[in-house]
Simulated assay, not measured.
Amino acid sequence: MRNLFDKVEQDLKEGKKKKACDRLRNLINQFPDDLSLRKKLGQIYYDAGFLDEAGKFWMLSEHENKEMKIAVELYRKTLSNSGNAILKDVVFRGNKAQLNEYARKVLTELEQDSLKKTKHIPDFKPKTRAKGNYSIPKNNQSFLTTVGLCLLVGFVIALPILGIVKLLELISLLFSY
């Protein structure tokens, strides 16, 4: 992770803010419990003038200065201070038990607000697919089930065709005398 964080710093020095943001988002997906990544991404957005987006990534961090507090308040106001909307936007996929007390408190308050107002708490499961593991999901149907299903569909399709053929035979018999 340190190597990737160094690349983020290098991207920022070179003025490649979008690249740095993309790298940080990927790191957040890989290490969701590391709030320093969110904090760094929030700082990039703040420096770029996107205060509400900075507030989104600073949401789980204790306010170290007035700027952080203002950005988080702006972000909350942007989403009408809705716990449900904020949880859906922040998308925390980590283990809450590994967070500091402040972050756990914020998540708990958002969840309580969401439950109170919508009777639902958005829950985001960690991504389980390992990088580079792109296997095709196995089909649970057996060969005989597949063959049986094909025969049934074929019969349903053939039935009206056979009916039309028999109807034409009857009509030709009636008019042949």
Results as ranks from 00 to 15, higher is better:
51 L>T: 13
134 Y>D: 15
150 C>N: 09
125 K>I: 13
128 T>D: 05
30 Q>K: 12
5 F>S: 08
150 C>D: 09
111 E>D: 02
141 Q>D: 05
30 Q>I: 12
53 E>G: 00
160 P>L: 06
173 L>F: 09
160 P>M: 06
89 D>W: 03
81 N>S: 15
79 L>I: 07
38 R>L: 06
71 A>K: 00
61 S>T: 07
112 Q>I: 15
2 R>G: 15
77 K>M: 11
81 N>E: 14
133 N>H: 14
162 L>W: 12
21 C>H: 03
98 Q>W: 13
89 D>F: 04
157 I>R: 02
86 I>C: 02
136 I>K: 07
4 L>N: 10
133 N>K: 13
48 A>Y: 08
139 N>T: 12
153 V>H: 04
42 G>N: 10
33 D>V: 04
34 D>S: 03
67 E>S: 06
111 E>K: 09
170 L>T: 03
114 S>K: 04
177 Y>T: 09
46 Y>H: 08
91 V>L: 14
123 D>N: 06
143 F>E: 11
127 K>V: 15
166 K>C: 14
104 R>V: 06
147 V>K: 07
133 N>Q: 14
66 K>H: 11
95 N>G: 01
148 G>M: 05
62 E>I: 07
138 K>R: 10
9 E>P: 01
19 K>A: 15
35 L>R: 12
108 T>D: 09
67 E>W: 06
158 A>W: 13
23 R>G: 09
37 L>H: 02
131 K>L: 12
169 E>T: 03
83 G>Y: 03
125 K>Y: 08
7 K>L: 13
95 N>P: 01
30 Q>Y: 14
42 G>Q: 12
111 E>R: 03
57 F>M: 00
6 D>W: 05
15 G>M: 09
82 S>Q: 04
15 G>Q: 07
67 E>K: 11
3 N>E: 13
165 V>C: 09
1 M>D: 14
143 F>L: 10
14 E>M: 07
121 I>L: 02
17 K>A: 15
4 L>T: 03
134 Y>C: 06
71 A>N: 02
97 A>W: 07
43 Q>R: 13
111 E>M: 05
145 T>N: 06
